[in-house]
Design a protein around this nucleic acid. Structure first.
Lengths: 233, 233
DNA sequence: ACCTGAACACCGTTCAAGT
DNA sequence: ACCTGAACACCGTTCAAGT
């Protein structure tokens, strides 16, 4: 067994200890996830971005799971902050939904990790509360308010996740047009006998707009809620 | 360096080579995921269940990702098979949605892995096609059919995923009551000033039924579609 | 054609040790 | 109080070798 002495070459190696903070860790975590994706984002990769050792991260965070939860929560904070209380509750709800949808599209890695846990992701619950508060103004029983709010958020998160997945299928096709083309090609070669609807729909998909699709579904829900509101008046 | 000779005890060790098949691999994969969850389901764990070596799995499957995709597809096959073409398209759609929702609840690991890719998960696209075919009978323009179908599936998958997440928060609380209690406790301690809606809603959540919540949201969507149908007649 | 074990490059996490 | 490097027990994947 030998002791190996490392020659640093230069005698004046800076060797300054990196100074971290929960803030900087989370900021770098979000940035890293955005850049290289959840799949490739390891703690070692994060440490490298921070210019720190891996184990340093554990001073601020208990586990990778917690780090991801906090990263999601950090991103959702922007949704909460941006929303302004509109005069019309339906406009306000639409506003929140759109902001959340955009956030999922922007930070795709958070799509599958949004949880309604006040401890782990308070901002997620804040969003639910914002939607619910608006619904409490339209005159529905309280359990219908709750069911409507979770329906809306379930739809937004669900469709968002599906779209993120669809985008990943295109792989390295970065541009939106290339992505749409890849998706459409995958669909149009499908057996028209077994999948008649998808086959004809693939023509629609060619000039497809995610925002439009999202908006349509959201309106279905909002109209459904309006109907229940009208029934009670 | 020594060579260690292992004494098998019994001299007649069977040492039969395990016989595998794509069928048995997928079956064991689904069973394993159901039992121990996606988090703990490694290829080594699967190999052990199969009584085979890890690398044997790679004869039938290119990667773990593909294995998971195929496992999801296998589970979705039951949804496709169960559905019967109803006379009323709305009843038929409701039927499909409920079956999909039940499947996600039963196989929680597949919640975040459902993709609309005809290559990787044909049965997922089959489900979309089934819903779309029903919608084509109600008299809407083809892009509204497509938007409605994806809205419904987005909602089902999204709300299903959210509920799976909520259940996991309760941790090892296996029974449904324990899960609800843990969730409710988490919510009722919430600041009533900052989260007024959630605070009052937590009372509703105490006697909460996932199926009811799901049904309510689905009806919002279906009613919204019916409205658009009525407008065009 | 199908299955094996060993090896590779990576993980997340822990911990005694440094500053 | 905060940061480090080394070590641990795991991963998914590859591959030459066996049957």
């Amino acid at each position: 067994m030998f002791e190996v002495w490392q020659d640093e070459g230069m005698t004046t190696v800076p060797k300054t200890r990196t100074v971290l903070s929960l803030e900087s860790v989370l900021e770098e975590s979000v940035a890293g996830l955005d850049e290289i994706g959840a799949e490739k984002m390891s703690l070692r990769a994060l440490a490298k971005r921070l210019g720190a050792g891996v184990s340093s991260i554990y001073w601020y965070v208990d586990s990778k799971n917690q780090l991801l939860d906090m990263s999601v929560d950090r991103v959702l904070a922007d949704v909460v902050a941006t929303v302004d209380p509109d005069s019309d509750p339906f406009d306000a709800i639409r506003d929140i939904a759109v902001r959340l949808f955009e956030t999922i599209d922007e930070h795709q890695w958070c799509a599958g990790r949004i949880t309604q846990d006040p401890v782990r992701q308070l901002n997620s619950v804040r969003i639910l509360d914002l939607v619910g508060r608006q619904l409490s103004r339209v005159g529905l029983p309280v359990d219908d308010q709750f069911h409507s709010a979770t329906a809306i958020l379930g739809f937004v998160i669900g469709l968002g996740t599906q779209m993120v997945g669809a985008q990943n299928l295109a792989g390295d096709a970065v541009t939106r047009l290339a992505y749409l083309d890849a998706a459409a090609n995958r669909w149009k070669d499908v057996d028209p006998d077994e999948l008649p609807f998808v086959h004809t729909a693939s023509a629609v998909l060619r000039e497809h707009d995610d925002a439009e699709q999202f908006s349509f579904g959201l309106d279905l829900l909002l109209d459904g809620i309006r109907q229940r509101q009208a029934r009670r008046l």
